[in-house]
Every structure is written in structure tokens, then in C-alpha cells.
Write a protein that binds this DNA or RNA. Structure first.
Length: 968
RNA sequence: GGGCUUGUAGCUCAGCUGGUUAGAGCGCGCGCUUGAUAAGCGUGAGGUCGUAAGUUCAAAUCUUACCAGGCCCA
């Protein structure tokens, strides 16, 4: 027989067949799958399926509805979706109701900006119209974001999301606020804020622009009137300030933790204001610069003091006893330690006006310093500032007023001024009017942290700290972070002087200032909110709410709105509490099983929800809290538009597919900051390809799989039983990983399974059986049965992550419904077989020596394909005994293989980590079977099929006779 | 500046309470295969474990400082 005219047996080989393409084409395919889910109403089916199951309630932290989603939103929502889908498949009822934060400043700005573009002023627009436009704006972006989130594959109740601006929500937020009236924690206090005298309004941090501004700076001496340190007797403390107009409001002086020098002035230069003989105190490090600044030419250091020596010292206000002051400045000015004092500039002493600075206010609070308001909302001194009343800090058009000049003249008159200069520095200005701002105390509403809750013997802080301890934090370190914050946080300021929000709908008695705590009135207000939303507060006359018992003239109505953090902190009340949400989401329940947000929410939503829950329910609204980090660029740098290193989720799902983005989320360690960029996404695609091809191979191998082929597991070869054992192992890992949200480990387990167990080992070994064995052979039936099982498990394991691809595979397999309606299949414990696993570890070790030896032979051009080889494997009798029943030739994919118990030849190939095994490679003897490509001695001995081995000849012959059938 | 936190191969990640030559996958190089083929298999080269001190018989693992990031504050 010549080799010229060999029969082509390709058509007799059972090659894999599938419509599941190698390349996903996800950007086109995913929208089709989304449409299919809509068609079969997957969400409703999920809910119906889970009725009565144990609940797993992930409560959505509401994103802010003012723009398209960015990568951080995508990460957050994908994580939620993977966990929700995963738990549903593990047998929970895991509903997901998305939510939106709709009120607040950023939306107000946008609307205001639109007004300004039209040359309109916000203040000229009726408040209800303004609110309506804010509402429309939020509704628009809610819709945009909803579409983007759904495109990511996130499944949930998108037709019925919660929103903080619905009537029901606004009414419930108000009721939550009223609970803090009831429990006595809500109080009115003051707080320094950035104030614009031009707009007569407080400004939020984001409305402030820092611009260069020239300020008059003063060096001012405060005479010491009481001290326990001898060196300070008759001395004066020197402060430095850039805001002369705050001097009348001075109440204290702060010093830092460094050395101070007491000096005597011995000589002064021209125009100096200091006097010879003055004894002054400044920080030792700033001694030289001070002399320079104040034109003191000669001085003597009298003493150097430690910070502790300043403790208990009391100075007098420079205006003490000033004519016309009526004793208004005769109070003591104590010295206190302040951590914020630095040596960057000045004298090491900071003058403290508690009404006009954040540090000042906090220090004042710490030491209980009493102070009056000194500057009115128009920037003028109030009448109580004797000798300065009516003078102006900044004028109505934003220019410097006459207050500074008057203060300077008075300081000179009292011989307290040591020096005066101008400096140019960054100073806060209004984003709107561009006018400079001042710090000014304003009345605000607070929730007390350290007051006993009425009816309880505990403070809100204590209840909150208890609740933190009872909560499970993922990662555990999150607990420290929030505990530290709650331990040290000040009272919660919940008021904002804004229009787009839920008003703090209270009536205050005009004379006493007391809150009207009348249940009937509050119920009427809340009922009005139920009907008309918070607009009711603006639209209806006060008397409507007050009823017959009170006169509107006796009360002022509060029009501050509540901080949006209070609103989002209340979402559990109107969303999770089925009694309060009107049964709108009957499958939700309180407390939620899980809150899942970025780590910044330790200060934000986690904390506001915690405080709100603790104040109104006595416990946290969550049982577990999972946090993720932030998304950085490929170099680990923060993303920013100016750096041009942002990755838009829309680009990823439009160009690569949402499954790639989902895979990226799961493959990164999301508990810490994670990186994304072109290279990382490329790598994610490679990762995706492995999963896709594994599914594809299974689908191809299972083409036309008939139930009649299914083989009882007991009848299967060891290799199949080992795969079943692996399924058992992976299954238990999937379950524990999902339960502890360790998605990274879960993914790696699945990847290794696909890679090492399936692709490199099982699929490779079983190709021969799959392609060439007769359809009714036990081996092939076992293979197909196990591959069917692998598919069933793998597709469900992957479904929460690759939600689109898993569904595509599911449908391609010809299954009904949706993969997402499956539970993770249970694995019979009989599949677990540790002894077999151990045996296969050994087999794989021996296999590695064989493949290693073949690789060497290939390098030496001795062989090409493994089927050309006949390895001689040397090992001990015990080794071969322990591998009883294993066909190593099949496992190493060789045409033949011999085992030897003899001494390992010196030239045999060995591996360091596989002791006692050596391999020599010979060429397999015989001819190549043209069907299965094995090289076997019997090829050529069959007259009818001279190019086939015995096995292939039988298969081909039976096919020709039409006698093969899977059921036979 | 403060609180919390991160820094292991080009990339994504493992390395438990300190203990033999620091692991995996991807990517890359090389080879095989051409019946998973814009795929599959095998194999190889890549790491002073951010830097520097210290504790210890022994440190990627503990301590301190520094450098470079991140979140939240100031």
C-alpha cells in the first residue's frame, strides 16, 4: 500500500459543533439579551421564583442624579449585581431596588446656571417654579443613569426605583426628622459658615473660589494680666492676623506646642510702632522674622518658655477700657493650646474670634468660651459692638468697608499695634458674585450626639457605637474607620439654607424660639407632604397646618432644608420598612442584609444611615457593610478629566462589552483601590476568552447530546469521577466565597478549573474519545455525561459574573427560560472522593515528567506531536501499584507507553520535584491511524481499512452499516 | 498637617499566626499542533517582595523612619 491515496476519514470523526462563536461580539449581542430579558420579564420571574425564601436584602445606596455614570458607579453597581444574582442563585430571595438621591446643591447650581445663561436671577424666580425645574432635571438624569446601569446587566426593579424626591419619600423624610424632635435630639445652634455679604447667603464649599486678594495684616500686642510664670509678668502676647475686622470679636488666644521667647525691645527703626522697653512674647522660631516685620532693631531675649508655661495665662483685650466701649471689651482673653497653630507665618499666637473661623469656633466650643455675634448678614457690626456698630466689613458691592480702618485706628490709639503690612494671598470668594467672603456664625439645626435620647438612658453616640460593634464589616478594617469617626464627630448639622430639598418643616414661637412640638400640627404637615410633596410647605398658608389651636402670627416657619445626607440616611425608612413604604416594595425588609458602597461612605451614607437608624429605631438599618475602594488609572493615579486618564464605562460596554467590565470588577481586588486602563482591559479580554472558549468547547462537544447517552456516575472511568470530585470541590468554594463576598477568589478558582483541570487536562485527554470512540462506547458516554454536568455547573457559577455570556451559552445549549432562574446545582456528596484526588495528584506529577521528557525530545527533533512518542516510564513497584487501573498513555496523550520497575537509566529525564520517576522517549511503533492519528502496530493489518486502527475500523464499519446508536 | 489605608514578576492576584531555592494565571519568547485554529497543548525567561534601618538563630511576613499612591478630614 502506498501512502499516496489515503482515505479521508475526517467526515467520520465526531468533531465539536456549535453556533456559539469564538468571538463574543458582545456590544451587539448584549442588547439582544437585554431585550430577551425584558420579553420574558426576567425580573418578575426572579421575584416570583424566590417567594418565601430566606431574604438577602441589599439596599442600594443612591447615586446622585446629575450626570452620566462614571467608572466608580459602574464598579459599585456591578458588584451589587454580582452579589445579588449570586445570592439569588444560592437560594435566597435577593431583591434589588435601585434608588436615587435627587435633592441638593449640585442640581440647584445647574438650574441656577441655566438661569444665569438667560440673564435671570434665581431670586427672581418663584421657589415652586425653581423646585419644579430641579425636579425635572433630576428626573432626566435618573432616566439616563437607569439606562446605563441596565446596560451593564444590572437586574432590579428598574420600573419602580426609589427616589428621595417622590411625595412619599419627602413625607417620610420629614417624619423621620420629626422623630428627632420627639426624642429631643434636634436643637437649634450656631455654626460658622462662609458667608457672602453681597448675596446675603451662606456658601457651600463647592461654591467657593479661591482668588488672590490683598489683605491688611496686623501684629497686635495683648497685655498679660494674669500669669503664673514670672517671665511673663508685664509682658504682651503678640498675635498676627489677616482680618483686622475680627479683632472686636476676639475672645481668646491660641498657642502651639513649641518654644516661645520673651524679649525686651531695646531699639526701633523709623516708623516702628513698638516702643523701647516693651516686653513681648513670640514663638522662638519666628523671633527674627518678627523683629524684622515690626522694625525692631535691637532686642534682648529675656527668657525662653515651653508651651506649658503659657497655660493659665490671661490677657486683656486691646480695647479694654476704650472710650465709648462701655466696658464691652473688659472680658478676659485666655490663652489656650490649639493644635492648628503653626509656625508657617505670624508669631506663633493666633487670635481667636469664635464667631469668625472654624478653628476659632471649635476651640471656643472646647473651652466653653462665651461670645456674641458681631457681624450681621449685611456685613455690618451689630449694635453690641460698642464703638464700632454699623461699620462695614465688606460693602454691598463687595468692596472693603470701613471696619478695618476703624479697628486699626483704635489699635494705634490704644498703643496695641506693633506693625501693619499688606499681603497678597489666596482668599475665598463667591463663585457667583466674585466678592470676598467672611466667616460668620449662623443659626443652624443640629442633632445632638451626646444628649441622652428621651426615654432612653443612652446618647446617640453610644447607641451608634454599639450598633457598629454589632455590624459585620467587610473588610473588617472598615469597622475601625467608622468607629473612629463616630467617636470623634461633632453634633450633626442637618440644615441648609437652600430651596431644593425637604424643608425642616417646623414652627418656632416668635418670642421664645421654642419648637412647636404638637403632634396634630406635625401630622397635618406630614399629611400635606403625602399629598403634594414638600412643595406643600411653600404652597400652603401656615394657618392650614396650625389649625385652630395656634395663630400663624405667633410663629415663624422654618424654611431651611434638611441636609441631603439626612435624606439618604432615611432611605431605609421609606424603602425597606414595608409598614412605611405603603407596601410598595413588599420583598424588602429592615434591617437590610447588606449595604455596599465605596469606602468614602464611612463618613457619608453608612454614617448618616447609622445615626438616623440609631436615633429612630435604636439600631443600624444594616447587618453587614461591604466597602470597595476607588478606581485609579493604570499608573495608580486618580482619574481626572484634565489628566485625560479617565475610562468611561460607556466606552467599555460599547467597544468591548459589559461582560468585560463585569469581569474586570470581579478580577480586581475591589476592597482596595483598583486600576483600569487599556492594558488592563486587554488582559481582562484574554481572561474572558478562556471562559468563553471553555463554554464553547463544552457546547461543541455536547452537540446533539441525547439523554439516552447519560451514564450512571458509578459506571464512569476514574478520570470522570475525578472531575466530579473537582466539581464538588469548586462548588463548595463558590458557595463560601459568595457568602463572604470574596469574588476575586471565586473567579480565580473558576479560572483555574477551566484552565488547568478542563482545558489542559480533561478536554485534552478526552478529545480522542470524544472524536473517535463509537457513540455508544462507555468512555465516550461518560465523557459527554460529565461534560453536560460541567456545563450545567459552570454556566451557573459564571452567570452572576458574565451575566450575558452565560445566558448566551444557556440559550445555545437549547435550554428554556434563563440561566438566571437557575439555582446553583447541588452536588451529591458521593462525588467527593479525597482518595481519588490524592491519586490524581500523583498521576499528574508523573504526567508532568512525561510531558517534560517529550518536550526535550521535541527540541531534539526526535518527535513532533505527542502521539508520535512512546515514553518508557521508570518508577517503583509501589508507585505503579498505587496507580493501578490508570492508562498513562491515554492520560499523557501518547500512542503507547510502557511502565518499568527497573533502575532509572542515567540518561532518563527527571523533574526535581517528582522524586523516583524517570522517562525515556522512544518513537511509537506502527503506522498512523488516519482517523485517530495514533501510531499503532495494528494499523495496516485490516484489509478493508488499511489506514485505520482496530477501534476506528470498528466505528467506521458500524457507521457504514448504520448500526451505531447511542442507546444500544 | 491629622485619621484610616496600599505598595510582591510587564499585568491581575496568592502568600495563614515570621521558618527550606517567593507561587498562580495572563502577557511575552520558543516549540508542537492545524480535528477548540483570530483557538488548543507544551515549555522557557521574568521578582534586591517601595526604600532604609532595627528586633530575631530566621522577615515579603514584626517595629520605626522615609518615598510614592488612595479615601476621609483639616
Amino acid at each position: 500500500m502506498t501512502t499516496d491515496h489515503k482515505t479521508d476519514y475526517r467526515s467520520t470523526v465526531f468533531l465539536p459543533q456549535t453556533d456559539f462563536p469564538m468571538r463574543g461580539g458582545l456590544p451587539e449581542k448584549e442588547p439582544e439579551i437585554l431585550a430577551r430579558w425584558k420579553e420574558i420579564d426576567l425580573h418578575a420571574a426572579l421575584r416570583a421564583q424566590a417567594e418565601g425564601r430566606e431574604r438577602f436584602v441589599l439596599h442600594d445606596g443612591p447615586p446622585y442624579a446629575n450626570g452620566s455614570i462614571h467608572i466608580g458607579h459602574a464598579l459599585n453597581k456591578i458588584l451589587k449585581d454580582v452579589i445579588v444574582r449570586g445570592h439569588q442563585m444560592l437560594g435566597f430571595d435577593a431583591p434589588y431596588v435601585p434608588g436615587w438621591d435627587c435633592h441638593g446643591l449640585p442640581i440647584e447650581w445647574k438650574i441656577e446656571e441655566q438661569y444665569r445663561a438667560k440673564g435671570l436671577d434665581k431670586d427672581d424666580v418663584p421657589v415652586l417654579q425653581f423646585r419644579a425645574e430641579c425636579r425635572a432635571f433630576a428626573a432626566h438624569w435618573k432616566d439616563v443613569q437607569s439606562g446605563e446601569f441596565q446596560r451593564l446587566g444590572v437586574i432590579g426593579d428598574w420600573d419602580h426605583p426609589y427616589m428621595t424626591m417622590t411625595k412619599k419619600a419627602e413625607a417620610q423624610i420629614l417624619r423621620e426628622l420629626y422623630k428627632f424632635v420627639d426624642n429631643g435630639l434636634l436643637y437649634k445652634g450656631v455654626k460658622p459658615v462662609m458667608w457672602s455679604v453681597v448675596e446675603k447667603t451662606a456658601l457651600a464649599e463647592a461654591e467657593i473660589e479661591y482668588q488672590d486678594h490683598t489683605s491688611t495684616t496686623l501684629w497686635i500686642a495683648f497685655p498679660i494680666i494674669k500669669t503664673e510664670t514670672a517671665a511673663l509678668k508685664d509682658a504682651k502676647v503678640v498675635i498676627w492676623t489677616t482680618t483686622p475686622w475680627t479683632i472686636p470679636a476676639n475672645r481668646a488666644i491660641a498657642y502651639g506646642d513649641f518654644d516661645y521667647t520673651v524679649l525686651r525691645v531695646d531699639g526701633v527703626g523709623e516708623n516702628a510702632l513698638a516702643h523701647i522697653g516693651d516686653i513681648l512674647v513670640v514663638a522662638d522660631n519666628l523671633y527674627e522674622t518678627f523683629l524684622d516685620d515690626s522694625k525692631i532693631t535691637e532686642a534682648t531675649k529675656l527668657a525662653t518658655l515651653k508651651a506649658d508655661n503659657l497655660k493659665g495665662t490671661i490677657a486683656a483685650h486691646p480695647f479694654r477700657g476704650r472710650d465709648g466701649s462701655e466696658g464691652a471689651f473688659d472680658y478676659d482673653v485666655p490663652l489656650y493650646r490649639g493644635a492648628f497653630v503653626t509656625l508657617d507665618a505670624g508669631t506663633g499666637f493666633v487670635h481667636i474670634a469664635p464667631g469668625h473661623g472654624e478653628d476659632d469656633f471649635n476651640l471656643g466650643k472646647e473651652y466653653g468660651i462665651a461670645f456674641d455675634e458681631t457681624v450681621g448678614d449685611d456685613g455690618r457690626y451689630l449694635p453690641n459692638v460698642k464703638g464700632f456698630a454699623g461699620l462695614c466689613v465688606y460693602t454691598a458691592d463687595g468692596k472693603t468697608g470701613d471696619a478695618n480702618g476703624a479697628v486699626i485706628r483704635a489699635l494705634i490709639e490704644k498703643e496695641a499695634l506693633l506693625a501693619k503690612r499688606n499681603i497678597k494671598h489666596a482668599y475665598p470668594h463667591s463663585w457667583r458674585s466674585k466678592a470676598p467672603l467672611i466667616f460668620r456664625t449662623t443659626p443652624q439645626w443640629f442633632i445632638a450626639m451626646d444628649k441622652k435620647i428621651e426615654g432612653q438612658n443612652k446618647t446617640l453616640r453610644e447607641v451608634a457605637l454599639d450598633a457598629i460593634a454589632k455590624t459585620e464589616w467587610f473588610p473588617a478594617i472598615g469597622e475601625n474607620r467608622i468607629r473612629g469617626m463616630v467617636e470623634s464627630r461633632p453634633d450633626w448639622c442637618i440644615s441648609r439654607q437652600r430651596a431644593w430639598g425637604v424643608p425642616i418643616a417646623l414652627f418656632l414661637h416668635k418670642e421664645t424660639g421654642a419648637i412647636l412640638r404638637d403632634k396634630e400640627v406635625m401630622n397635618r404637615v406630614a399629611a400635606a407632604f403625602d399629598e403634594d410633596g414638600a412643595d406643600a410647605w411653600y404652597a400652603r398658608p401656615a394657618q392650614d397646618f396650625l389649625g385652630n389651636s395656634y395663630r400663624a402670627d405667633d410663629y415663624t416657619q422654618v424654611f431651611d432644608v434638611v441636609d441631603v445626607w439626612f435624606e439618604s440616611g432615611s432611605t431605609h425608612a421609606f424603602c425597606l420598612n414595608t409598614a412605611l413604604n405603603g407596601n410598595e416594595w413588599p420583598t424588602l425588609s429592615l434591617p437590610a442584609t447588606l449595604y455596599l458602597e465605596g469606602s468614602d461612605q464611612h463618613r457619608g451614607w453608612f454614617q448618616s444611615s447609622l445615626l438616623e437608624g440609631c436615633g429612630t429605631l435604636g439600631h443600624a438599618p444594616f447587618e453587614k457593610v461591604l466597602t470597595h475602594g476607588f478606581t485609579l488609572d493604570e499608573q495608580g493615579r486618580k482619574m481626572s478629566k484634565s489628566l485625560g486618564n479617565t475610562v468611561a464605562p460607556q466606552d467599555v460596554y460599547n467597544k468591548m462589552g459589559a461582560d468585560i467590565l463585569r469581569l474586570w470588577v470581579v478580577s480586581s481586588d475591589f476592597t482596595e483601590d483598583q486600576r483600569i486602563g487599556p492594558d488592563i482591559l486587554k488582559q481582562t479580554s484574554d481572561l474572558y476568552r478562556r471562559f468563553r472558549n471553555t463554554l464553547r468547547y463544552l457546547l461543541g462537544a455536547l452537540s446533539e447530546f441525547d439523554e439516552a447517552e447519560r451514564l450512571d456516575t458509578k459506571a464512569m472511568p476514574e478520570l470522570e469521577r475525578w472531575i466530579l470530585h473537582r466539581l464538588h470541590t469548586v462548588d463548595s468554594i463558590v458557595r463560601t466565597d459568595m457568602a463572604r463576598f470574596d469574588l476575586g477568589h471565586l473567579l480565580m478558582t473558576l479560572h483555574n478549573f477551566c484552565n488547568a483541570d478542563l482545558s489542559a487536562l480533561y478536554f485534552d485527554i478526552r478529545k480522542d474519545s470524544l472524536y473517535c470512540d463509537d457513540k455508544d462506547s462507555i468512555r465516550r458516554r461518560a465523557t459527554r455525561t460529565v461534560m453536560d454536568l460541567i456545563f450545567n455547573h459552570l454556566v451557573v457559577w459564571l452567570a452572576p459574573i458574565l451575566c450575558f455570556t452565560a445566558e448566551e451559552a444557556w440559550v445555545t445549549r437549547g435550554r428554556q427560560g434563563s440561566v438566571h432562574l437557575q439555582n446553583v446545582p447541588t452536588v451529591p456528596d458521593s462525588w467527593k472522593n479525597d482518595a481519588l484526588a490524592k491519586k490524581w495528584e500523583l498521576i499528574r506529577a508523573v504526567r508532568r515528567v512525561v510531558t517534560g521528557a517529550m518536550e526535550l525530545a521535541r527540541k531534539e527533533k526526535k518527535i513532533g506531536a505527542p502521539l508520535q512518542a512512546h515514553p518508557h516510564v521508570y518508577g517503583s513497584k509501589e508507585l505503579w501499584a498505587s496507580l493501578e487501573g490508570v492508562d498513562l498513555a491515554e492520560i499523557a496523550i501518547c500512542s503507547a507507553l510502557s511502565l518499568h520497575e527497573d533502575q532509572i537509566p542515567d540518561q532518563a529525564f527527571r523533574l526535581d520535584d517528582v522524586a523516583g520517576v524517570g522517562v525515556m522517549i522512544d518513537l511509537a511503533e506502527g503506522k498512523k491511524c488516519e482517523r485517530c492519528w495514533q501510531i499503532l502496530p495494528e494499523v495496516g493489518s485490516h484489509a478493508d481499512h488499511p489506514d485505520l486502527c482496530t477501534r476506528c475500523r470498528r466505528v467506521v464499519t458500524r457507521r457504514q452499516e448504520g448500526g451505531t446508536s447511542a442507546s444500544s
